[in-house]
């Protein structure tokens, strides 16, 4: 029974990682950029939600406002920080991403101050009880939201026109441009969706753990990155699987080994995966043509 309860706890943590990892992996899949500022977009999303919720807006408005503002912010970041570096070596864009991440964190520190803000209760916590097991409705919402968005995203990329454009850009930017695809617009759209997903993760985090603070995105962002790599970075269902594995590993480590070991083991997994199967669980080995 305790084990099952622990797995439920893992599901809650894992769902949040999965939602954040979706955006990570999507941006990487399309433009091959590890967007280290993703965790900070998540944090900003949580702050937007905090402001909207404090103003007494209804739940749907809180989600919508935060996701739209974060999407706009993602597009802005891309056009200011990443677009000028599109043809520069990949390492330059990566370092810029770290710079953006630090900038956003310190911006939040200046604007919102260091003390944690307490998120108003916008979703009442009503646990569902099965015998001695308890599943919080927030856990269920988080889980459902992450699965729904994974399916939506997969359908969007595989079945729609803008999705097709994304795949084309990801395969070959120049060729896509020659075929009449607006590359800049496609990449902007990618960032808009990725940032909205990050914000969603941030809102769910804020609701589940009641506090919003400037370094909120740091660790979940890093863990979502590990989840994305674990599942196979660039592959959308992989991010989901990676997120859940991370959640379970973390929870079980805390429960049966020790709390101080959980981060060490979680990041240890990244090292093992990278050395055994660098493309991740769902990754295929593609030989690069010379």
């Amino acid at each position: 029974m305790v084990l099952i309860q622990q797995l439920i706890n893992g599901l809650q943590v894992g769902s949040i990682y999965a939602v954040i990892a979706l955006g990570y992996t999507m941006v990487y899949g399309i433009i091959k950029l590890i967007n280290f500022a993703h965790g900070e977009v998540m944090m900003m999303g949580a702050y937007f939600a905090f402001i909207a919720a404090s103003a007494g807006m209804p739940v749907w408005a809180v989600f919508a406002i935060s996701m739209i503002l974060s999407a706009l912010m993602g597009v802005f970041i891309e056009s200011v920080a990443y677009r000028p570096l599109r043809n520069a070596p990949r390492i330059s864009a990566l370092i810029t991403a770290i710079g953006v991440s630090l900038f956003l964190q310190n911006l939040a520190l200046v604007v919102f101050k260091a003390d944690p803000k307490v998120m108003p209760t916008i979703i009442e916590n009503q646990p569902i009880i099965f015998g001695s097991l308890r599943i919080s409705n927030i856990t269920i919402i988080t889980f459902v939201v992450s699965v729904v968005f994974m399916i939506l995203l997969t359908v969007f990329i595989n079945k729609t026109k803008p999705g097709k454009a994304m795949r084309a850009v990801s395969e070959d930017k120049e060729a896509a441009m020659l075929m009449g695809i607006n590359v800049n617009q496609t990449i902007s759209l990618t960032f808009a969706i990725g940032s909205a997903l990050a914000a969603l993760g941030g809102i769910l985090y804020g609701i589940a753990y009641t506090q919003v603070f400037p370094t909120l995105g740091l660790l979940p962002g890093l863990k979502a990155f590990v989840a994305a790599v674990l599942g196979g970075i660039g592959i959308i269902p992989g991010a989901m699987i990676g997120g859940f594995i991370m959640g379970f590993v973390e929870t079980l480590t805390k429960a049966y080994i020790s709390g101080s070991w959980s981060d060490a083991i979680v990041f240890g997994i990244l090292i093992v995966v990278l050395s055994v199967k660098p493309t991740g669980i769902l990754g295929k080995n593609i030989r690069e043509k010379v």
Binding site: N9, T251, G259, D263
Partner: peptide, 20 residues
């Protein structure tokens, strides 16, 4: 007798043990 880390946000694992 459980120690959590400063960066922990989810205490449900520990609380499940305590509940047990």
């Amino acid at each position: 007798y459980i120690g959590y880390t400063a960066s922990d946000a989810d205490y449900s694992t520990y609380l499940t043990q305590i509940k047990d």
